[in-house]
Protein backbone atom coordinates (compact mmCIF):
# COMPACT_ATOMS: atom_id res chain seq x y z
CA UNK A 1 0.00 0.00 0.00
CA UNK A 2 2.69 2.43 1.04
CA UNK A 3 4.67 1.66 -2.06
CA UNK A 4 1.75 2.53 -4.28
CA UNK A 5 1.30 5.92 -2.58
CA UNK A 6 4.96 6.63 -3.09
CA UNK A 7 4.72 5.69 -6.71
CA UNK A 8 1.74 7.90 -7.44
CA UNK A 9 3.36 10.68 -5.44
CA UNK A 10 6.46 10.57 -7.62
CA UNK A 11 4.40 10.24 -10.75
CA UNK A 12 2.32 13.32 -9.94
CA UNK A 13 5.40 15.30 -8.93
CA UNK A 14 7.06 14.30 -12.16
CA UNK A 15 4.09 15.37 -14.27
CA UNK A 16 3.82 18.68 -12.41
CA UNK A 17 7.50 19.41 -12.79
CA UNK A 18 7.22 18.66 -16.49
CA UNK A 19 4.28 21.00 -16.84
CA UNK A 20 6.06 23.81 -15.07
CA UNK A 21 9.62 23.28 -16.23
CA UNK A 22 9.27 22.28 -19.87
CA UNK A 23 7.81 25.59 -21.08
CA UNK A 24 10.65 27.34 -19.27
CA UNK A 25 13.41 25.52 -21.12
CA UNK A 26 12.85 27.30 -24.47
CA UNK A 27 12.61 30.60 -22.60
CA UNK A 28 16.04 30.02 -21.08
CA UNK A 29 17.55 28.95 -24.41
CA UNK A 30 15.84 31.81 -26.20
CA UNK A 31 17.32 34.34 -23.81
CA UNK A 32 20.82 33.28 -24.88
CA UNK A 33 20.29 33.22 -28.60
CA UNK A 34 19.71 35.74 -31.28
CA UNK A 35 18.79 33.81 -34.39
CA UNK A 36 17.39 30.57 -33.05
CA UNK A 37 15.59 29.28 -36.11
CA UNK A 38 13.19 26.51 -36.84
CA UNK A 39 13.97 23.62 -37.45
CA UNK A 40 17.18 23.75 -35.37
CA UNK A 41 16.68 21.93 -32.09
CA UNK A 42 19.23 24.17 -30.45
CA UNK A 43 20.56 27.59 -31.46
CA UNK A 44 23.81 27.39 -33.40
CA UNK A 45 25.44 30.10 -31.33
CA UNK A 46 25.15 31.27 -27.76
CA UNK A 47 25.04 34.99 -27.15
CA UNK A 48 25.08 36.90 -23.89
CA UNK A 49 24.10 40.17 -25.59
CA UNK A 50 20.58 40.35 -24.24
CA UNK A 51 21.69 39.56 -20.69
CA UNK A 52 24.44 42.14 -20.96
CA UNK A 53 21.95 44.73 -22.16
CA UNK A 54 19.48 44.02 -19.37
CA UNK A 55 22.10 44.39 -16.68
CA UNK A 56 24.04 47.32 -18.01
CA UNK A 57 21.63 49.95 -19.18
CA UNK A 58 22.30 52.54 -16.55
CA UNK A 59 21.31 50.05 -13.82
CA UNK A 60 17.65 50.57 -14.73
CA UNK A 61 16.94 46.88 -14.23
CA UNK A 62 18.47 46.72 -10.76
CA UNK A 63 16.71 49.89 -9.67
CA UNK A 64 13.40 48.63 -10.98
CA UNK A 65 13.83 45.32 -9.15
CA UNK A 66 14.51 47.18 -5.91
CA UNK A 67 11.51 49.47 -6.47
CA UNK A 68 9.26 46.49 -7.22
CA UNK A 69 10.31 44.71 -4.05
CA UNK A 70 10.09 47.84 -1.93
CA UNK A 71 6.52 48.39 -3.08
CA UNK A 72 5.49 44.74 -2.72
CA UNK A 73 6.87 44.43 0.82
CA UNK A 74 5.39 47.73 2.02
CA UNK A 75 2.03 46.91 0.48
CA UNK A 76 2.04 43.50 2.11
CA UNK A 77 2.84 44.91 5.55
CA UNK A 78 0.02 47.43 5.24
CA UNK A 79 -2.30 44.69 4.04
CA UNK A 80 -1.45 42.51 6.99
CA UNK A 81 -2.17 45.39 9.32
CA UNK A 82 -5.51 46.08 7.66
CA UNK A 83 -6.57 42.49 7.10
CA UNK A 84 -5.99 41.02 10.56
CA UNK A 85 -8.84 42.89 12.32
CA UNK A 86 -11.11 42.54 9.31
CA UNK A 87 -10.52 38.79 9.03
CA UNK A 88 -10.93 38.39 12.77
CA UNK A 89 -14.49 39.66 12.55
CA UNK A 90 -15.42 38.16 9.19
CA UNK A 91 -13.99 34.77 10.04
CA UNK A 92 -15.44 34.30 13.48
CA UNK A 93 -18.54 36.42 13.91
CA UNK A 94 -21.99 36.39 12.46
CA UNK A 95 -23.93 39.59 12.10
CA UNK A 96 -26.50 41.25 9.90
CA UNK A 97 -25.21 42.35 6.54
CA UNK A 98 -22.04 40.30 6.79
CA UNK A 99 -22.43 39.06 3.24
CA UNK A 100 -22.55 42.64 2.04
CA UNK A 101 -19.40 43.57 3.90
CA UNK A 102 -17.60 40.49 2.63
CA UNK A 103 -18.76 41.23 -0.88
CA UNK A 104 -17.36 44.74 -0.64
CA UNK A 105 -14.04 43.48 0.66
CA UNK A 106 -13.68 40.95 -2.13
CA UNK A 107 -15.05 43.20 -4.86
CA UNK A 108 -11.61 44.22 -6.21
CA UNK A 109 -10.97 40.59 -7.19
CA UNK A 110 -14.00 40.61 -9.46
CA UNK A 111 -14.02 44.23 -10.61
CA UNK A 112 -10.81 44.88 -12.56
CA UNK A 113 -8.60 46.99 -10.32
CA UNK A 114 -7.81 49.53 -12.98
CA UNK A 115 -11.47 50.51 -13.20
CA UNK A 116 -11.41 51.82 -9.65
CA UNK A 117 -7.90 53.16 -10.11
CA UNK A 118 -9.08 55.39 -12.97
CA UNK A 119 -11.26 57.22 -10.47
CA UNK A 120 -8.65 57.17 -7.76
CA UNK A 121 -6.16 58.63 -10.22
CA UNK A 122 -8.07 61.94 -10.18
CA UNK A 123 -8.27 62.03 -6.40
CA UNK A 124 -4.59 61.22 -6.16
CA UNK A 125 -3.76 64.04 -8.57
CA UNK A 126 -5.66 66.46 -6.35
CA UNK A 127 -3.84 65.12 -3.30
CA UNK A 128 -0.56 65.47 -5.15
CA UNK A 129 0.56 61.88 -4.72
CA UNK A 130 0.58 60.71 -8.33
CA UNK A 131 4.03 60.01 -9.78
CA UNK A 132 5.23 59.08 -6.27
CA UNK A 133 6.05 55.81 -4.59
CA UNK A 134 3.47 56.56 -1.90
CA UNK A 135 0.72 56.83 -4.49
CA UNK A 136 1.71 53.54 -6.15
CA UNK A 137 1.82 51.75 -2.79
CA UNK A 138 -1.66 52.99 -1.88
CA UNK A 139 -2.98 52.00 -5.31
CA UNK A 140 -1.47 48.50 -5.06
CA UNK A 141 -3.48 47.90 -1.88
CA UNK A 142 -6.66 47.74 -3.94
CA UNK A 143 -5.97 44.56 -5.89
CA UNK A 144 -3.92 42.85 -3.16
CA UNK A 145 -5.93 43.37 0.03
CA UNK A 146 -8.80 40.98 -0.88
CA UNK A 147 -6.38 38.06 -1.20
CA UNK A 148 -4.89 38.78 2.19
CA UNK A 149 -8.32 39.06 3.79
CA UNK A 150 -9.52 35.86 2.11
CA UNK A 151 -6.52 33.86 3.30
CA UNK A 152 -6.83 35.14 6.86
CA UNK A 153 -10.61 34.69 7.02
CA UNK A 154 -10.20 31.01 6.24
CA UNK A 155 -7.61 30.68 9.00
CA UNK A 156 -9.80 32.47 11.50
CA UNK A 157 -12.74 30.30 10.44
CA UNK A 158 -11.01 27.22 11.79
CA UNK A 159 -10.11 28.57 15.22
CA UNK A 160 -13.32 29.78 16.73
CA UNK A 161 -13.18 31.24 20.23
CA UNK A 162 -12.58 28.20 22.43
CA UNK A 163 -8.79 28.30 22.50
CA UNK A 164 -8.71 32.00 23.22
CA UNK A 165 -11.24 31.59 26.00
CA UNK A 166 -9.18 28.79 27.45
CA UNK A 167 -6.15 31.05 27.48
CA UNK A 168 -8.05 33.88 29.09
CA UNK A 169 -9.33 31.58 31.80
CA UNK A 170 -5.74 30.67 32.53
CA UNK A 171 -4.90 34.37 32.86
CA UNK A 172 -3.41 35.34 29.51
CA UNK A 173 -3.78 38.96 28.36
CA UNK A 174 -5.34 39.74 24.97
CA UNK A 175 -1.86 40.47 23.73
CA UNK A 176 -0.54 37.10 24.88
CA UNK A 177 -3.65 35.43 23.49
CA UNK A 178 -2.95 36.86 20.08
CA UNK A 179 0.73 36.04 19.97
CA UNK A 180 0.71 32.62 21.57
CA UNK A 181 -2.68 31.25 20.59
CA UNK A 182 -4.07 33.01 17.52
CA UNK A 183 -0.87 33.67 15.62
CA UNK A 184 0.32 30.04 15.46
CA UNK A 185 -3.07 29.04 14.15
CA UNK A 186 -3.29 31.66 11.48
CA UNK A 187 0.37 31.64 10.45
CA UNK A 188 -0.26 29.38 7.44
CA UNK A 189 -2.94 31.84 6.38
CA UNK A 190 -0.54 34.74 6.85
CA UNK A 191 2.03 32.99 4.67
CA UNK A 192 -0.57 32.34 1.98
CA UNK A 193 -1.93 35.88 2.17
CA UNK A 194 1.51 37.49 2.11
CA UNK A 195 2.59 35.33 -0.85
CA UNK A 196 -0.46 36.35 -2.85
CA UNK A 197 -0.13 39.96 -1.85
CA UNK A 198 3.52 40.07 -2.88
CA UNK A 199 2.90 38.28 -6.17
CA UNK A 200 -0.10 40.37 -7.16
CA UNK A 201 1.74 43.58 -6.30
CA UNK A 202 4.82 42.55 -8.29
CA UNK A 203 2.61 41.80 -11.30
CA UNK A 204 0.86 45.17 -11.58
CA UNK A 205 1.44 47.08 -14.78
CA UNK A 206 -1.50 49.37 -15.58
CA UNK A 207 -2.02 50.59 -12.02
CA UNK A 208 1.67 51.31 -11.56
CA UNK A 209 1.85 53.15 -14.85
CA UNK A 210 -1.31 55.18 -14.23
CA UNK A 211 -0.50 56.27 -10.69
CA UNK A 212 3.29 56.15 -10.91
CA UNK A 213 3.22 57.88 -14.29
CA UNK A 214 6.50 56.33 -15.39
CA UNK A 215 8.30 58.04 -12.52
CA UNK A 216 8.07 54.92 -10.38
CA UNK A 217 9.79 52.27 -12.49
CA UNK A 218 8.98 48.73 -11.49
CA UNK A 219 10.22 45.66 -13.35
CA UNK A 220 6.94 45.10 -15.27
CA UNK A 221 7.21 48.65 -16.61
CA UNK A 222 10.66 47.93 -17.98
CA UNK A 223 9.59 44.51 -19.24
CA UNK A 224 6.27 45.19 -20.99
CA UNK A 225 7.57 47.18 -23.96
CA UNK A 226 9.81 44.22 -24.79
CA UNK A 227 7.27 41.44 -24.46
CA UNK A 228 4.47 43.19 -26.31
CA UNK A 229 5.91 43.56 -29.77
CA UNK A 230 9.44 44.54 -28.79
CA UNK A 231 12.70 42.60 -28.85
CA UNK A 232 11.70 39.02 -27.91
CA UNK A 233 15.16 37.97 -26.72
CA UNK A 234 15.43 40.81 -24.22
CA UNK A 235 11.81 40.10 -23.36
CA UNK A 236 12.68 36.53 -22.38
CA UNK A 237 15.66 37.67 -20.31
CA UNK A 238 13.45 40.10 -18.42
CA UNK A 239 10.78 37.42 -17.95
CA UNK A 240 13.36 35.12 -16.39
CA UNK A 241 14.63 37.95 -14.18
CA UNK A 242 11.04 38.60 -13.13
CA UNK A 243 10.49 34.95 -12.23
CA UNK A 244 13.69 34.81 -10.23
CA UNK A 245 12.70 37.99 -8.41
CA UNK A 246 9.18 36.81 -7.59
CA UNK A 247 10.36 33.32 -6.63
CA UNK A 248 13.16 34.77 -4.52
CA UNK A 249 10.81 37.12 -2.69
CA UNK A 250 8.45 34.26 -1.86
CA UNK A 251 11.25 32.00 -0.72
CA UNK A 252 12.75 34.62 1.58
CA UNK A 253 9.37 35.40 3.10
CA UNK A 254 8.55 31.76 3.57
CA UNK A 255 11.87 31.00 5.24
CA UNK A 256 11.63 34.03 7.57
CA UNK A 257 8.08 33.27 8.69
CA UNK A 258 8.79 29.59 9.20
CA UNK A 259 11.88 30.42 11.21
CA UNK A 260 9.77 32.70 13.34
CA UNK A 261 7.24 29.95 13.74
CA UNK A 262 9.79 27.39 14.85
CA UNK A 263 11.58 29.72 17.22
CA UNK A 264 8.72 31.52 18.88
CA UNK A 265 5.76 29.29 18.59
CA UNK A 266 6.61 25.63 18.79
CA UNK A 267 8.71 26.25 21.91
CA UNK A 268 5.69 27.33 23.84
CA UNK A 269 3.73 24.33 22.76
CA UNK A 270 6.27 21.82 23.89
Amino acid sequence: MKRRINLSYYLITFILVCFIAIPLIPLVIFSFSYGWKWPDLFPDQISLDAWAYVFDFGSKTWNSIMTSLKIAVTVTLINLFLALPAANILGRMDFKGKWLLEGLFYAPIIVPAFVSVMGIHMTFIQMGITDTLLGVILAHIIPTLPYMIRALVISYNTIGYIWEEQGKVLGASSFQCFFYIILPFILPGIIAGCSLSILVSLNQYIITFLIGGGQVMTLPLVMFPFISGGDPVIGSVLSLVFMIMAGGALLVMDVLLKKYYVRNVTLHFS
Binding site: T74, D131, L134, I137
Partner: peptide
Protein backbone atom coordinates in the same frame (compact mmCIF):
# COMPACT_ATOMS: atom_id res chain seq x y z
CA UNK B 1 5.32 56.22 3.51
CA UNK B 2 5.84 60.01 3.51
CA UNK B 3 9.59 59.64 3.14
CA UNK B 4 8.97 57.27 0.26
CA UNK B 5 6.73 59.86 -1.32
CA UNK B 6 9.12 62.75 -0.98
CA UNK B 7 12.02 60.89 -2.45
CA UNK B 8 10.48 60.87 -5.92
CA UNK B 9 8.36 64.01 -6.00
CA UNK B 10 8.91 65.92 -9.24
Amino acid sequence: ARTLGEEESP
